[in-house]
Design a binder for these strands. Sequence first.
DNA 1: GCTTTCCTGGACTCGACGGTCCAGAAAATT
DNA 2: AATTTTCTGGACCGTCGAGTCCAGGAAAGC
Lengths: 203, 203
Amino acid sequence: MGITTKGRATRQRIVEGAAVHLRGTEPGTLTLDDVRAITGTSKGQLFHYFPGGKEELLLAVARFEADRVLDDQQPHLGALTSWAAWRRWRDAVVARYRAQGAHCPLGSLLGQVHSTPGAAEVVSTLLGQWEGHLRRGIEAMQARDQVDPALDAGRHAAALLAGVQGGVQVLRSTGSSRHLEAALDLGIEALRPPRTREGPADP
Amino acid sequence: MGITTKGRATRQRIVEGAAVHLRGTEPGTLTLDDVRAITGTSKGQLFHYFPGGKEELLLAVARFEADRVLDDQQPHLGALTSWAAWRRWRDAVVARYRAQGAHCPLGSLLGQVHSTPGAAEVVSTLLGQWEGHLRRGIEAMQARDQVDPALDAGRHAAALLAGVQGGVQVLRSTGSSRHLEAALDLGIEALRPPRTREGPADP
DNA sequence: GCTTTCCTGGACTCGACGGTCCAGAAAATT
DNA sequence: AATTTTCTGGACCGTCGAGTCCAGGAAAGC
């Protein structure tokens, strides 16, 4: 009564293989036979590890990809304590989504495993964590007197997150990162004090 | 050699019926038999009017819905010439997407008929028109000295559009309009002159 | 070493769904 | 009224893909 090391490895191989395939094609076109072919497994194994079938597998992939989304923005996202850090984060986001072009795992998941119970939870968690990082970043800047303390960190974090999400969506549709960059730049700009737009120097 | 009035009506009935169904369910679950059932038509008619099959039908629905998106924001979106008009537009957007909750036609289309040739064009056109309205609105405000003429209208329009798109996406996922409202409010706020945050009075 | 549990492979079922076909009704055209 | 075109209904087909089943191989436990 337990799971062997070999079993764990196979399960992991399935999830990662499916994730890779999902990154290269439209979601919804993914078939279990695709997964079989890519990961070198059999139907038996698929249903052995994911008794809930395709939906359970997709949800596992969703969790896997959700983790990657924030990881790819680290270490910048976790330490937004200077204007330079914000700049690096902004560049990392643009670079990441430019690179992946038409396929945002989050977007794919949002569009695909939408109405299931656990799926909404995965998305909510991801968005919540993302926004939390941004909010704490803004608060850190406020604590350092580089951002007006009267500014509502929660609102700005929410707006910034929305801008990034929308920018990525437009990027996926049109291939241009113009909106993403505009949303990021103006969103960050809005944090700077209105009087001295350059703000205190960054060591 | 021509199309009869009856034919036109049937075609329209098919498109609208499919659109209604698409608004109430996940896209991708739509089957031709669903459309048949809803619109009271037969397979023969479906392929008579849409020889390209499901894809052509979906594309027709996409165009139909894309028109609705901007129409629903009128007349506000077409005349953003005062702060009050911006406010009305903002309220209209929030109300519209709150009401439709989990199903944004644009979002559905983005996620569904993604990779086809004409689909990208529909989305690009819609986004382009939307952004154009916003840009002209900002320029109109600049012409009236209510917005700093040095401000880059194109960039702000792009960022605002991204914020709306992302806000709607979050709304679809979490059910909360917090992000959408934050993105709209802060995006519009960013247009106001920094010195006099209240701006000239609105007659 | 023997038993029990876990792991793997693949053949098979079965339903769903897109798409085809054609015959006949309804309009339009002459 | 005859004829041609368009419209409509529905039976039919082929495929594809999710999920089942079970038999045999590998580990783990005793």
